[in-house]
């Protein structure tokens, strides 16, 4: 990235992160691990150990994992769909796309900057879940050594490093939604339609994943490995399925960004 590209990227981040709707979504996201912690605290009795929700009362760090567990299927993809679906379609619907291209921002360059901003948004969402869970956990629950899902006890610092890996894995997982959203966004001038279509695709993936008769294709679905980060909280870490999950994510990201590039590169901008 050149200096000029960094400047454009900075401007794009400003568009995403200063937007009130997006900030509101981040606040809602931050509330979820907090509300889980309060609910667990208030219910007073322990869930069985060896599970993520059961671990919260032993160690607050599990509140962050519980946040990832409940948010990854729907709300997180919704948040990514909103920003990714808006990326190109939003500029098209407001007419600003024609002026960006006449600057000239460069079609490939604009797409690359938009995608970089989407990836940053994915990372920010995962970070907000992790931080909110971590802080809520520190306030309401013990924070010393923690028992992994496989039963071994590790230090809090070790747990935080694993949480960081989970955060990165979740980011990589939902970047697939971002890439799909970017592509859909080049297909329409209606941002809401792009958002809805993107979210619908992630839901279709999860529905298909839940149908046993479709077992043959499960491993190819974008959402199939999304919760595989639980392997990172075992000892030793089971890397094989996490690795497969990352490869599938990479495949989808490459496929849909290439489609978006092919589509956008030759598209008539008539909006």
């Amino acid at each position: 990235m050149s200096r000029a590209d960094l400047r454009f990227f900075g401007s794009e981040l400003g568009m995403v992160f200063r937007r009130r709707r997006n900030l509101a979504l981040l606040v809602i996201l931050a509330c979820v691990p907090l509300l889980i912690s309060i609910a667990v605290k208030a219910s007073g009795h322990d869930a069985p150990g060896g599970s993520i929700f059961g671990g919260i009362t032993d160690n607050g760090l599990f509140a962050a994992l519980a946040g990832f567990l409940v948010l990854t299927p729907l709300f997180l993809p919704l948040m990514i769909s909103v920003v990714a679906g808006d990326s190109i379609a939003g500029e098209a619907s407001s007419g600003t796309l024609r002026y960006l291209l006449a600057i000239p921002a460069g079609r490939s360059r604009l797409l690359a900057i938009k995608f970089a901003a989407i990836v940053t948004w994915c990372l920010a969402c995962a970070l907000v879940i992790a931080l909110s869970g971590l802080l809520a956990g520190l306030v309401f629950f013990p924070s010393g050594e923690l028992t992994l899902l496989s039963g071994r006890v590790v230090s809090y610092g070790d747990g935080v490093v694993r949480l960081l890996l989970v955060l990165l894995y979740v980011t990589a997982s939902v970047v697939t939604v971002g890439a799909i959203g970017l592509f859909v966004s080049t297909m329409t001038e209606a941002p809401i339609a792009a958002m809805a279509a993107t979210l619908t695709l992630t839901i279709v993936s999860q529905v298909a994943d839940a149908v046993p008769q479709l077992g043959r294709i499960h491993g190819w679905l974008p959402s199939h490995y999304w919760l595989q980060w639980v392997d990172l909280f075992r000892d030793p870490i089971i890397t094989s399925r996490v690795g497969t999950g990352l490869l599938v994510a990479l495949g989808y990201v490459l496929f849909f960004t290439a489609l978006a590039w092919a589509r956008f590169g030759g598209k008539d901008i008539t909006a």
Binding site: R3, A4, D5, F8, S11, M15, Y99, I103, L110
Partner: peptide, 13 residues
């Protein structure tokens, strides 16, 4: 206007 200028790779920030 700053947004448009930022998109211009040949503009001086």
């Amino acid at each position: 206007l700053l947004r448009l200028d930022a998109a211009d790779r040949t503009a001086d920030a």
